[in-house]
Design a protein around this nucleic acid. Structure first.
Length: 431
RNA sequence: UCCUCAGUAGCUCAAUGGUAGAGCAUCCGGCUGUUAACCGGAGGGUUGCAGGUUCGAGUCCUGCCUGAGGAGCCA
């Protein structure tokens, strides 16, 4: 039986294969807590009701020993979770020796100690809850796109050229004749597949060699990127808003227990409904300056700027029409104000910062060529991309949503490192 | 790359320049409903490394190492 199915097995004798999470003892009654990956269940072993050998075996168990227990399930209000197993048999697969006990105890530990033992930390209740929510987020993202006419067309990890500046690329030796880079975005390829399929998305790991050491940065992170042919900035905004609302609603629907483990204030998540407030970059700068920020028109937001802005809103909000100078070469200029581009960021509330960035792409051949030149990019590497403007070019756009930042926000975590099983950061690549 | 902080028992942390300690974990004992159980006892230390100041350094100084938070940077 899976522990998560306990309610459907009340009164039945079942078998649970798992690990000892903790053992509480009270005289002649033992309360081993068993976890099996789906949940944690309290078992009860009463000395007078069991053969001596069974009772002593349970009493001698050590934390995280692998065991298979049998017994009858019953509803029990005194048990955490509401169900309890009256233990009548146990098989020990491996007993963890007390000479080298399981290092992660139920008490406090520092982050360095835990990160060094990430492979074991994943067994803990909080980490388990976070990664289950991540799974729900990923499923919801896929379900949203799959049910809205998007085709999944994944893009390559090895790429010959940069999408942004070359300083943030990880370089890889590609046999002995070439250098390639780990992708930092699938967007350029998405633009090609969107012209073939109409609406597409890719979903996979991306890599940024930024020397950033903050609560919002990983060097390897997962991003979902939709791209749509015949789409404008407004279409992009609408899909972004629908996606975020759908994902949050799914977590609220299916992962309440995990949110409770994390002590997340779900009322904040229940606010996540359309319409999201929308402000322009100009307006954002005005608001920030009024709050005392030193930001000047023409520069990008810092982390504290994003936090300041989010104080004004109780749900995710959008900022659009950024200065062209601070954005990527492919961004479509606003026809009414060429100094700004038709780009949009979605920022999460509660200071979690940018979770989505995107916008409308340049569809005009001549303008794209000019931008490539202005950004001093090697034209030969972009010939295929330029082709897309020669053969049936159309207005199009899309965005990227960072999964880890999204999960950190939904879970209410203070650092993205806990939102992925094995985080890769500036100074940490192990375990 | 820069700034700030930290490094003492397996873990989390104390210790005015003057005998290195507590809680948890481990081990032994007690308790028939525990909820990070509780109660009693035991073992457990090259105070990150290398120098320096001092009668005396965990504590002050210099350098280095490691980690954390942040800045810059970040479609």
């Amino acid at each position: 039986m899976a522990i998560s199915d306990a309610a459907r097995h009340v009164g039945q004798r079942v078998r649970i294969a798992g690990w000892l999470y903790n053992l509480r003892e009270s005289g002649k009654i033992l309360f081993p807590l068993v976890r099996d990956g789906t949940g944690i269940m309290q078992c009860v072993a009463v000395k007078s009701a069991l053969p001596e050998e069974v009772f002593e075996t349970v009493r001698d168990l050590t934390q995280e020993s692998s065991i298979i227990v049998t017994g009858v399930v019953r509803a029990e209000p005194r048990a955490p979770g509401g169900y309890e197993l009256e233990l009548d048999g146990i098989e020990v697969i491996q007993r963890v020796p007390e000479s080298d006990p399981y290092p992660i105890t139920p008490k406090e530990h520092g982050i360095e100690f835990l990160m060094d033992r990430r492979h074991l930390w994943l067994r803990s209740r909080r980490q388990h809850a976070i990664l289950r929510i991540r799974h729900e987020v990923v499923r919801a993202v896929r379900d949203y796109f799959d049910s809205h006419g998007f085709t999944l067309v994944d893009t390559p990890i090895f790429t010959p050229s940069a999408c942004e500046g070359t300083t943030t690329l990880f370089e890889v030796n590609y046999f002995d004749h070439d250098k390639v880079y780990l992708t930092q975005s699938g967007q350029l390829y998405n633009e090609a597949t969107a012209m073939a399929f109409g609406k597409v998305y890719c979903f996979g790991p991306t890599f940024r060699a930024e020397r950033s050491k903050t609560r919002r940065h990983l060097t390897e992170f997962w991003m979902v990127e939709p791209e749509m042919a015949y789409a404008t900035l407004d279409d992009v905004k609408q899909v972004a808003e629908e996606l975020v609302c759908y994902v949050v609603a799914r977590v609220l629907e299916n992962r309440r227990a995990e949110l409770a483990v994390l002590e997340r204030d779900v009322s904040k998540l229940e606010n996540v409904k359309p319409p999201f407030p929308q402000i322009s970059y100009d307006e954002a700068v005005r608001r920030l300056q009024a709050k005392g920020s030193s930001i000047q028109w023409g520069t990008d937001f810092g982390g504290t700027d994003e936090t300041l802005l989010s104080e004004d809103f109780d749900r995710p909000f959008m900022v659009d029409r950024f200065p062209a100078a601070v954005k990527a070469f492919y961004m479509q200029p606003d026809p009414e104000r060429p100094e700004v581009v038709l780009g949009v960021d979605v920022l999460a509330p509660e200071g979690y910062g940018e979770i989505i960035g995107g916008g409308q792409r340049i569809d005009d051949l001549e303008l794209l060529l000019r931008r490539i030149e202005e950004h001093k990019l090697p034209r030969e590497a972009f010939e295929w991309y330029i082709d897309l403007r020669k053969y049936g070019t159309v207005p199009h756009g899309g965005f990227g949503m960072g999964i880890e930042r999204c999960v950190a926000w939904i879970c209410g975590l203070d650092h993205v490192r806990e939102t992925i099983a094995f985080p890769r950061m500036l100074y940490r690549t192990r375990p």
